[in-house]
């Protein structure tokens, strides 16, 4: 077997080819996921990957797990239902930035708040890929999209700050450039007993790259490298416009499904209903 060939077991061959453009960062993330699943020796039968709608959210089709491909912005609501009804399942939600931060922003903050044991991956390419390159709530100010040809006048969300404020108990940021660190964060997020969010800066050469004259997928990887810096040992001032990368929070708080199970016990003992 060639190096890495065993990872094919984590992909659903019959669903290939995938829908992504050459150089799209979403494929890098899927590759990282297969390596993570392999390293964890995850039981694929007991794993459910749930996507919303968008290029990023197509990923469930191509992974060899149980999968749901749901509606735009609502992946976390389905994930909440699956996890609550069968807490023993490992549940991941894969979303785009439009998915998670615009139409699904409300669900995102409430999932953070509840601290339900779901791993959310937000694949942030700063644009709406699937619908043809429109402005996203994560598009950096003055950047171009098909609906902001003169440059965006809006302030983008900082996904990490949002998740921290909303109460997520594991929060990290990586980029598709971080070949080794990204899967490590994903693994920590899956292992984390609570709501875990990893924002992954991903590249969309077809729209983000082209409209902003930043080049192809490879050039965008370099761009990611140059515009981010490891969180450790750096002050806000030193960041100088770079986005910090790393683990922002890892703490244990009561998890929702466990609290719910305890509540059921209490209700049973009280004999009410």
């Amino acid at each position: 077997m060639r190096h890495g060939e065993h990872l094919r077991a984590y992909l659903r061959e019959e669903a290939m080819p995938n829908v992504w453009c050459p150089g799209c960062g979403h494929g890098n993330v899927m590759g990282a996921l297969t390596r993570t699943f392999d390293r964890m020796q995850l039981d694929l039968d007991a794993t459910v990957v749930i996507g919303g709608i968008g290029c990023a959210s197509r990923m469930p089709f191509f992974l060899n797990t149980n999968a749901m491909h749901t509606t735009h912005g609502r992946a976390l609501t389905f994930a909440t239902g699956v996890k609550l009804a069968r807490p023993e399942l490992t549940v991941l939600a894969v979303m785009g930035d439009g998915d998670a931060l615009a139409i699904g922003g409300n669900h995102l903050i409430h999932a953070c708040r509840r601290n339900i044991d779901v791993t959310a991956l937000v694949l942030n390419n700063g644009i709406y890929g699937m619908t043809g390159g429109q402005l996203a709530p994560s598009t950096p100010q003055s950047f171009r999209s098909t609906t902001s040809a003169l440059g965006s006048i809006e302030s983008p969300f900082d996904t990490v700050e949002l998740a921290l404020a909303a109460g997520a108990t594991y929060v990290a940021r990586a980029t598709t450039f971080d070949f080794d660190e990204m899967p490590q964060m994903i693994e920590a997020a899956i292992r984390h007993p609570g709501f875990a969010l990893v924002e992954i800066l991903s590249q969309c050469p077809t729209y983000f790259g082209r409209l902003n004259k930043l080049g192809d997928g490879r050039a965008l990887l370099d761009y990611e490298r140059d515009h981010t810096a490891p969180l450790e040992g750096i002050t806000r001032e030193e960041l100088a416009g770079q986005l910090p990368i790393g683990v922002f929070r890892e703490e244990i708080r009561p998890e929702y499904t466990r609290q719910y199970a305890a509540l059921c016990d209490r209700a049973r003992r009280a004999g009410n209903g």
Binding site: M68, T70, T80, G81, R86, L89, H110
Partner: peptide
């Protein structure tokens, strides 16, 4: 579970049904 709106309620219901 009391959800954050009706969209999410219906999403959770469908997710649960699939278990």
């Amino acid at each position: 579970i009391q959800m954050e709106d009706e969209l999410s309620s219906m999403g959770a219901v469908i997710g649960a049904s699939w278990t």
